[in-house]
């Protein structure tokens, strides 16, 4: 993001806990884009993703007191809020219904070659696409769809131990992809 960094993370958290609008505005300007990507990765519908993004920032604002900097970075905490909110949205019944109603129009858009966002070509999911197929499916199911390893084991009919090992390997590879050169 373009915004100039003017707070250290400690200062930013302190100012957010003091309910400072300027600090929250700074937080939004610096992180909304990154969180928007992860939400789009999971929710895939642009309009709905905007709503989830707003909901995520409301949660960040209202739950900032529960953020514990000894447990990790602010962004890790926010990323998990965004991921969980997105998965919850996808799993909610109303979303399921709207997705079904939408299927027809979506295929129409796709046929027309519209500018609809390719939500698997952005953010973390784009990086996951660089993994081998057998790892990619596991990360998709686990990270982007929120299934537990046990659920995945049953879903794919693979032993839980294998799911765990493969997933760990996938994440190590992902780490290599993520790591700045």
């Amino acid at each position: 993001m373009e915004a100039v960094k003017k707070y250290s993370e400690t200062e930013l958290v302190l100012l957010l806990k003091q309910r400072q609008e300027a600090a929250f505005s700074y937080l939004y300007d610096n992180y909304a884009g990154a969180l928007h990507s992860i939400i789009l990765n999971i929710v895939t519908d642009a309009e709905l993703a905007s709503d989830v993004l707003q909901e995520v920032f409301v949660k960040i604002w209202r739950q900032i007191e529960s953020y514990d900097d000894t447990k990790g970075r602010l962004f890790t905490w926010m990323l998990n809020i965004a991921r969980n909110a997105s998965i919850d949205t996808v799993r909610s019944r109303s979303f399921q219904n709207s997705q079904q109603n939408r299927e027809l129009t979506e295929s129409v858009y796709e046929l027309a070659g519209s500018t609809k966002i390719a939500t698997d070509q952005i953010g973390l999911r784009k990086l996951v696409h660089q993994l081998k197929e057998e790892y990619r499916t596991l990360v998709e199911l686990s990270y982007f769809q929120g299934y537990t390893q046990d659920e995945i084991s049953k879903m794919l009919d693979i032993p839980l131990g294998t799911v765990k090992t493969r997933l760990r390997t996938a994440l190590i590879q992902l780490k290599q992809i993520i790591k700045p050169a």
């Binding site: 993001m1 990154a34 969180l35 992860i38 905007s50 953010g123 990086l127």
Partner: peptide, 8 residues
């Protein structure tokens, strides 16, 4: 993630 940001 910031490098992969999508402006809302």
């Amino acid at each position: 993630a910031i490098a992969q940001a999508t402006p809302p």
